[in-house]
Simulated scan of single mutants.
Amino acid sequence: MRNSKIKVFTIAFTLIFLLGSLSTFAQGDKKSSAILEAMSKKYQQIKSFKAVFTYTPKGEKPLKGEATVKGMKFRLKMAGQEIFNDGKLMATYIKETNEVNLQDADPTAGGDLDPTKIYSAYKKGFKYVYLKEKKEGTKALDVVELTSTNKSSQVDKVEIEVNKADKSINAWKIFQKNGQEVVYKVEQFQPDVNVADSFFAFNTKQYPGVEVVDLR
């Protein structure tokens, strides 16, 4: 039960920050490439950020999540769990059981889905194509479809909505190979937040009676 919960949580989180390092060339048409490059450039200039989002599994009600990222450090709260990563140690706290699982932070383990390598994983493991333009209130959005080229990936494809005006991500929809679908929508985004490094480290004193499971 413990491993299953961690796995589901980690997949959900990493999908939210689906876009990672600019290490390889991608496969896509010129229009979609230009949109994704502009979006990626925007977010790479941000040193830290805090994001509030909703995620809605198909057929279910929207749920809320919150993430803070600073360089290689991150902290995420979602689905009754919270991940702390200070760049050296990753702690996954499970509220229901009041336990925390400790692991060494491996910067290569996340691969394309590393949440600290934001907004450009389309550069590796995906091919993409421009789908359409759509309206949401007063916002004009470009919709780009990313299809996974990694046979071992649990993700089949992703549809990303990019705001034409400021190149920010408005929402995205994940299609998994098992048929599951989840829609993520950015509700609030605060760039360059002032946050101490200690915020990303799990402090047992703040969680009375917590059971520590050291998996290192």
Rank of each mutant, 00 (worst) to 15 (best):
residue 2 R to K: 15
residue 9 F to E: 00
residue 10 T to A: 05
residue 11 I to V: 08
residue 16 I to R: 15
residue 17 F to Q: 15
residue 20 G to F: 13
residue 21 S to W: 12
residue 21 S to A: 09
residue 22 L to M: 09
residue 23 S to V: 14
residue 23 S to G: 02
residue 25 F to W: 09
residue 25 F to A: 03
residue 29 D to R: 12
residue 30 K to H: 00
residue 32 S to K: 13
residue 32 S to F: 03
residue 32 S to P: 11
residue 33 S to R: 09
residue 34 A to S: 11
residue 35 I to E: 02
residue 35 I to K: 05
residue 37 E to G: 04
residue 39 M to G: 02
residue 42 K to Y: 04
residue 43 Y to G: 03
residue 44 Q to D: 11
residue 46 I to V: 11
residue 51 A to I: 15
residue 51 A to H: 00
residue 54 T to Y: 09
residue 55 Y to S: 07
residue 57 P to M: 12
residue 58 K to L: 08
residue 62 P to G: 04
residue 63 L to T: 02
residue 65 G to W: 13
residue 66 E to R: 13
residue 66 E to I: 07
residue 66 E to Y: 12
residue 67 A to S: 15
residue 68 T to P: 05
residue 74 F to Q: 09
residue 76 L to F: 11
residue 77 K to R: 14
residue 79 A to T: 02
residue 79 A to D: 09
residue 82 E to M: 12
residue 83 I to Y: 13
residue 84 F to K: 07
residue 84 F to G: 11
residue 87 G to N: 14
residue 88 K to E: 14
residue 89 L to E: 10
residue 89 L to C: 07
residue 90 M to V: 01
residue 92 T to D: 05
residue 93 Y to K: 07
residue 95 K to T: 01
residue 96 E to N: 05
residue 97 T to M: 06
residue 98 N to M: 10
residue 99 E to K: 04
residue 101 N to T: 06
residue 102 L to E: 07
residue 103 Q to F: 10
residue 105 A to Q: 13
residue 107 P to V: 10
residue 107 P to Q: 15
residue 108 T to D: 07
residue 117 K to G: 15
residue 117 K to N: 09
residue 119 Y to C: 07
residue 119 Y to T: 03
residue 120 S to T: 10
residue 120 S to R: 10
residue 121 A to P: 00
residue 123 K to E: 00
residue 123 K to R: 11
residue 123 K to T: 00
residue 124 K to E: 00
residue 124 K to L: 01
residue 125 G to Q: 05
residue 126 F to W: 01
residue 129 V to P: 06
residue 130 Y to K: 14
residue 133 E to V: 12
residue 134 K to L: 02
residue 137 G to H: 01
residue 137 G to D: 03
residue 138 T to V: 05
residue 139 K to Q: 01
residue 142 D to K: 00
residue 142 D to W: 01
residue 144 V to H: 10
residue 144 V to F: 10
residue 147 T to H: 01
residue 160 I to T: 13
residue 162 V to G: 04
residue 165 A to E: 06
residue 166 D to A: 09
residue 169 I to T: 12
residue 170 N to F: 04
residue 172 W to H: 14
residue 173 K to A: 04
residue 176 Q to L: 05
residue 177 K to V: 00
residue 179 G to K: 15
residue 183 V to A: 08
residue 187 E to N: 13
residue 192 D to H: 15
residue 194 N to C: 00
residue 195 V to Y: 08
residue 195 V to K: 05
residue 196 A to L: 05
residue 197 D to V: 05
residue 199 F to M: 15
residue 205 K to N: 14
residue 208 P to Y: 06
residue 209 G to S: 07
residue 210 V to P: 00
residue 210 V to Y: 10
residue 210 V to F: 01
residue 211 E to M: 12
residue 212 V to G: 13
residue 213 V to D: 13
residue 215 L to C: 08
residue 216 R to G: 14
